[in-house]
């Protein structure tokens, strides 16, 4: 068990009254449970605005959850202070959606990588050596350390971002829509690269995406999210071949047949619905 999220809740106030009283919320995460096992890539899919990115940021504590437990390596890190959290920081890393804003335009590639390595006690020469190895690992030339991000294409930037995340030797890498801003061929390249890197760096991916094709290629387990709740989760093959929840069915049909089902907005999730075991690790939210 690498990471376990238990009953995670995060409500954002959407309307604040005159006296600071919050009258309505956006429920970005409404009691989410999920488990990521070491070595098994986990995919989280759902339409935009359903709370997947928020969930990723909650897991890495870029946002603090309102309630719930984040259990990483057997320890609840949900309420750890920033200082104690530092030990865990290098074990969970994140690659962001937009490679054009995830790299500081004023930092050279060397600065970007050395910022990630700042807590590692190594000599400068050795760090430089490691930087070059990392760049070669993500299939970039090793002599680009002095360059600025604006000199690279989107795909190259995303590789730099991946190199940065991997430089900390994480156990879990959260990829938040990491390939969705790239064109299809570059996506394919990056996905193959990620699969390669998994062997080399012994890392597990938590893949957040709206793109089912990408998830299918890289993930062993999938969860489908709607309005801050997980409606269905299970092994990847099972979900794709035998979707049970109506929302999953819609999502799949929209992705494969490019047809939007007519009753898309009609799914209402019951207040206290529970995930029901369908056998073989396949859970579906009761309807």
């Amino acid at each position: 068990m690498l990471l376990e999220l238990k009953n995670i809740k995060k409500y954002f106030p959407s309307h604040i009254g005159f006296f600071g009283k919050v009258s309505s919320f956006v429920k970005a995460a409404d009691g989410v449970d999920l488990t990521i096992v070491e070595g098994e890539n986990f995919g989280l899919v759902g339409e935009s605005g359903c709370g997947k990115t928020t969930l990723g940021r909650l897991a890495i504590k870029l946002l603090l959850c309102d309630s719930g437990e984040i259990i990483f390596k057997g320890r609840n890190i949900a309420n750890l202070s920033a200082k104690k959290m530092r030990v865990f920081r290098q074990d969970i890393q994140m690659v962001f959606q937009d490679p054009f804003t995830s790299l500081d335009p004023r930092f050279t590639v060397r600065n970007i990588l050395s910022e990630a390595m700042q807590f590692q006690k190594e000599s400068l020469v050795k760090k430089e050596e490691r930087m070059k190895e990392l760049l070669l690992a993500v299939r970039l030339p090793a002599d680009i350390l002095g360059r600025f991000p604006h000199e690279f294409s989107g795909g190259e930037r995303q590789r730099i971002a991946i190199a940065r995340a991997l430089s900390m030797n994480p156990k879990l890498l959260i990829l938040d829509e990491a390939v969705s801003s790239l064109d299809v061929l570059v996506q394919e390249e990056i996905l193959n690269l990620l699969l390669d890197l998994q062997q080399k760096f012994n890392v597990t991916y938590f893949f957040i995406s709206h793109n089912l094709r990408v998830v299918k290629k890289i993930c062993h387990k999938v969860a489908v999210m709607l309005n801050g709740r997980i409606v269905e989760r299970g092994p990847c093959g099972e979900i794709f071949s035998n979707p049970l929840h109506p929302y999953t069915k819609q999502l799949l049909s929209a992705a494969i047949e490019y047809k939007v089902a007519s009753n898309q907005k009609n799914i209402v999730l019951k207040e206290n619905a529970k995930l029901i075991d369908q056998g073989g690790g396949h859970f579906v939210l009761e309807n």
């Binding site: 940021r57 890495i60 870029l62 920033a82 959290m85 530092r86 920081r89 290098q90 969970i92 890393q93 994140m94 962001f96 959606q97 937009d98 804003t101 995830s102 790299l103 500081d104 930092f107 910022e115 990630a116 700042q118 807590f119 971002a161 940065r164 900390m168």
Partner: peptide, 15 residues
């Protein structure tokens, strides 16, 4: 709210 700031936060860089 830029992503490189978030990335630095995620890496444990101090405020």
């Amino acid at each position: 709210s830029r992503e490189y700031v978030l990335a630095a936060k995620a890496m444990g860089v101090s405020d």
